[in-house]
Amino acid sequence: MSNSENEFSISKADVEKFKRFDIQHRKCPVGPVADKYAYTFVPTSLGVAITVKCSCGQKILLGDVWDKDIVGVIEEEHKPMTEQDLANQRFEDDALGIIRLKDPNVYRMVFNAEQSFDIIYAYAMGVAEKADERISKAILYRIGLDEYYGTKQNYPGNDTENIQRFYTHFEQNIRDEIKKYNCKNIELLDELYPKESLWR
Rank of each mutant, 00 (worst) to 15 (best):
26 R>N: 10
54 C>Q: 08
118 D>I: 13
57 G>S: 08
92 E>V: 03
140 L>G: 03
90 R>W: 03
179 K>N: 05
141 Y>T: 11
130 K>M: 10
30 V>A: 13
117 F>S: 07
165 R>G: 04
39 Y>H: 04
198 L>T: 09
20 R>F: 15
14 D>M: 09
84 Q>E: 02
198 L>A: 06
84 Q>N: 02
95 A>W: 06
63 G>P: 07
5 E>T: 14
163 I>S: 12
143 I>H: 05
169 H>P: 10
60 I>M: 01
83 E>T: 04
81 M>L: 13
176 D>T: 09
35 D>W: 07
181 Y>Q: 00
1 M>G: 14
151 T>S: 15
198 L>D: 07
51 T>K: 05
195 K>L: 15
190 D>V: 06
42 V>E: 07
106 V>P: 08
115 Q>D: 02
102 K>Y: 13
159 D>V: 05
16 E>K: 14
76 E>C: 12
97 G>A: 06
117 F>R: 08
37 Y>M: 05
117 F>A: 10
98 I>G: 03
135 I>F: 08
82 T>K: 03
80 P>K: 06
170 F>C: 06
107 Y>C: 05
77 E>N: 15
89 Q>A: 13
169 H>T: 14
11 S>H: 07
101 L>Y: 09
110 V>G: 02
53 K>H: 00
63 G>A: 06
87 A>L: 00
122 A>N: 08
85 D>W: 01
182 N>K: 05
138 A>R: 02
19 K>L: 10
121 Y>H: 06
29 P>Y: 02
133 E>L: 07
72 G>F: 11
75 E>I: 15
199 W>N: 14
9 S>R: 09
3 N>R: 15
20 R>S: 15
172 Q>V: 02
18 F>W: 02
156 P>L: 13
157 G>E: 06
33 V>R: 15
34 A>R: 13
93 D>A: 11
12 K>R: 11
73 V>D: 13
104 P>R: 09
141 Y>D: 08
150 G>K: 14
196 E>V: 08
55 S>G: 01
112 N>K: 11
111 F>P: 03
170 F>I: 07
150 G>I: 05
148 Y>S: 10
103 D>S: 04
65 V>D: 04
39 Y>W: 14
104 P>S: 09
195 K>Y: 15
97 G>F: 02
158 N>M: 10
42 V>R: 11
96 L>I: 10
2 S>D: 06
138 A>Y: 02
2 S>H: 12
61 L>H: 03
173 N>T: 08
13 A>Q: 15
160 T>N: 08
88 N>P: 00
186 I>H: 08
7 E>Y: 12
55 S>L: 01
